[in-house]
């Protein structure tokens, strides 16, 4: 019994089908409780007022945006090394979810930035690298869509994901360098975590857990859809042959 048994689509479908409600319901519960707690039951920040509460969407979305890419990297590697189709399809399923998470982080960031910094957008290293990450997602999804043969598409996107990961990390630090080189001292980055009080931290953690579970549930669901779509295509092809 090893984890590779679930590379078998039938076994994966059975397990993921059983698992899905156990992920989706806690995700919904954690998000509902975390967001209501965060939005309505925490006090206003003494300087930021109630705008601080967007953190309960912003930070978890940003967290999952980066981790989705990391998950795609791992599944791409598994596909390239062991050639399990489920792995490639999971990477494909995760990409749009990750892209949307990136977009959520960017948009909530802009909404938060407007009252706090007086601007919707600043070329801050973090903001810029997230925008670049979004572009990487777009390119990855576009390549999946463009290549007709599924196996070729899986191979090419996996290679792109590996190369893209290296360049995404490079860009992250290059952007850091670029901004500090230009505007010294004009640091706009939000400093989360350490300085936050427990009243904010607990609902934030809950929201993070909720977003992570939501991500897992969506990826499972979308992977199941991809597998079914692949099956339908195979059935249609067989029908045409007969």
């Amino acid at each position: 019994m090893s984890i590779w048994e679930y590379a078998n689509p039938v076994k994966f479908m059975r397990l993921s089908g059983a698992l899905l409600p156990w992920v989706a319901i806690p995700a919904a519960a954690a998000l509902a409780v975390g967001l209501v707690w965060g939005f309505f039951l925490t006090p206003d920040d003494f300087r930021q007022g109630s705008t601080v509460k967007i953190i309960f969407v912003h930070v978890p979305a940003a967290l999952m945006a980066v981790n989705a890419w990391f998950m795609m990297l791992v599944t791409s590697l598994i596909w390239l090394i062991r050639r399990h189709h489920v792995s490639a399809l999971a990477a494909r399923a995760a990409a749009p979810v990750g892209a949307v998470m990136t977009l959520i982080a960017l948009i909530t960031g802009a909404v938060w930035g407007q009252p706090m910094w007086g601007t919707w957008w600043a070329w801050d290293p973090r903001l810029t690298s997230f925008l670049i990450l979004f572009l990487f997602y777009l390119g990855y999804i576009a390549l999946w869509e463009a290549v007709p043969d599924p196996e070729t598409a899986a191979d090419l996107t996996s290679v792109l994901c590996l190369v893209g990961s290296v360049f995404a990390v490079l860009s992250r630090y290059a952007v850091n360098f670029w901004n500090q080189g230009l505007h010294q001292g004009a640091s706009l980055s939000v400093a989360p975590g350490e300085r936050m009080d427990m009243t904010y931290k607990l609902p934030l953690y809950l929201c993070m857990v909720g977003f992570a579970l939501l991500f897992v549930a969506l990826v499972l669901l979308r992977t199941r859809t991809e597998i079914r779509a692949r099956r339908i295509k195979a059935l249609l092809a067989r029908e045409r042959m007969a």
Partner: peptide
């Protein structure tokens, strides 16, 4: 272009 331009970011910056 969509694939290559994001990869050009570090080169362009430096």
């Amino acid at each position: 272009s969509l694939l290559v331009l994001p990869l050009y970011v570090p080169t362009l910056i430096f």
